[in-house]
Design a protein around this nucleic acid. Sequence first.
DNA 1: CACTTGCGGCCAGGTCCTGGCCGCAATTCG
DNA 2: CGAATTGCGGCCAGGACCTGGCCGCAAGTG
Lengths: 319, 319
Amino acid sequence: MTVTSGRLLQLLSLLQTRRDWPGEELARRLEVSRRTIRRDVERLRELGYPVQATTGPDGGYRLEAGTAMPPLLLDDDEAVAIAVGLRTAAGAFVDGIEETSLRALVKLEQVLPAHLRRRVTALNEATATLAPSAGPTVDPETLTIIAGACRDHECLRFAYRAKDGVESRRVVEPHSLVNTGNRWYFVAWDCDRDAWRTFRLDRLERPTAAGRRFQPRQLPGGDPAAFVARNLSGSAPRHEARVTLRASKAEVALRSPWAASQCEPIDAVSCEYRASDSSIEWLALRLAMIGVDFEVHEPAVLREECGRLAERLAAAGAA
Amino acid sequence: MTVTSGRLLQLLSLLQTRRDWPGEELARRLEVSRRTIRRDVERLRELGYPVQATTGPDGGYRLEAGTAMPPLLLDDDEAVAIAVGLRTAAGAFVDGIEETSLRALVKLEQVLPAHLRRRVTALNEATATLAPSAGPTVDPETLTIIAGACRDHECLRFAYRAKDGVESRRVVEPHSLVNTGNRWYFVAWDCDRDAWRTFRLDRLERPTAAGRRFQPRQLPGGDPAAFVARNLSGSAPRHEARVTLRASKAEVALRSPWAASQCEPIDAVSCEYRASDSSIEWLALRLAMIGVDFEVHEPAVLREECGRLAERLAAAGAA
DNA sequence: CACTTGCGGCCAGGTCCTGGCCGCAATTCG
DNA sequence: CGAATTGCGGCCAGGACCTGGCCGCAAGTG
């Protein structure tokens, strides 16, 4: 029954755009009797969506938070906003959320109408400017193409620039994407070399689905993250910073709320701040961003980096 | 019809998690005959979802991008990822996307199951650390509560700290949220003072829905953005920076892709960078973040800020 | 207390769903 | 080229489901 199912979807959509809906209005919008609305609501409830109702004048229906996610019915703008948000989230280094963001993004982009896709890429370029990050960034386009190929077991072709700078064309059976810290790796079976390889995403260009499907192979060891870690052999060491800020924790919270959660109060005019990152430059900048005077206890390289940064800024300031 | 509609939704969900589905497998998963699958697919098409099919061995169904958004069927992790992404997008200053992100977020949070909500807030706190922004930030919680109250025409109660520091309790009929640059304003009818007011979100605390609904009033002039602009009377002046970077545009693009789009090449070893922001501190940090030597032409305050920052870092580096 | 709004039983007429069967078309593979 | 796989959709029959209308009931609101 295409009409009934469609109406149910419409009803769900209406219930998501506003909180309270009198049955009368729903009936008018969906062009059915109020009796049918009651029945539709009953159906939604049967499907597990918690629709609450209140009686009396000003009563109506309301979709509440339940135990499972109902299908999200988004309008164009909202879809675009979500896509943009996910792109930045997937591209950023936000411990533990990237892979999932990516999966959601792939799902969304699969069905994203073309005109919306154009808006997303346009907006994404515009916003990239304002979301600085340390180190080489990865194009969200690349990410979604590869993630999609992994999901759909589709062969992939791309250009790769090895560590020594040598360029080559690859054809692979994609297996998975792995995110460590702020870098993306791509685990795949290299068809030409007949072997498993890991590729760094920022060295990879113009990925395109080759169209051919394949039977997934078993990755030795099973866990792609472990596989990448093994092949990485200890690059990207993390730096653990311990710093005293010359301000109370409350002051820090006021100026830079994002830093407060890693602050331990010492006394009324200072607190200890801890942070870790694989990039010393970024670590130094984060400290500078807090906006209060500070003193670096460790590591020494961070102190040096602060000095370098100071020189650069001093030079700029003196000009 | 609950079973047919439910199956249609399940089918849609399956089609979103992977690209190709042989009819045989769909039939097995949904526990109906292949004939019924064919009919369900037909129904989806009738509802406007572009389901493509390919014949032959290795054939199957595939949900493609159409002209309208189908309902998104998300699993728990994906919902969390989207919520987190939207929260940062709404809190950040990403010209033009915040209001919409916020609307999508309100829609999502309305139906977000409690256990997922907990995960979102937890993650959000954790990630906030890595998404620094200049100036006072706004709690996404606050943002969604207010946006929801605006949408649902529900009275709102909150504490407000005026410019002169005086604290007061307010009860208002919320009208709209306005985002300018990197700041949020809230336009509402103040019930106690019987007048329209704009509030700065970062001065507002503990907003709670009062429960009472109201008939929306007409905002004089109609446009909330214009209303805010009128009442703002030229605060938050923007600083326009003009800087020479001591590196080629290509080098900048390599180190900090986000900055490249605002670079104009001068010669092989330098390029001009332009940026504007209401916060001098943030402007200086953005320059530092590019990671190359530079020289500030204007404004003078930016030069001074660089000097201040340099001193702070020098002190930290020397320690 | 009157009024509004949701709830759900009951009814009758008509529509739609499902599984099975079939011939057809497109594609892949040997 | 021919066999096999997969999707398409007509047809059928039995049964289940939908809809609108009507009603008495319960629960808020003023």
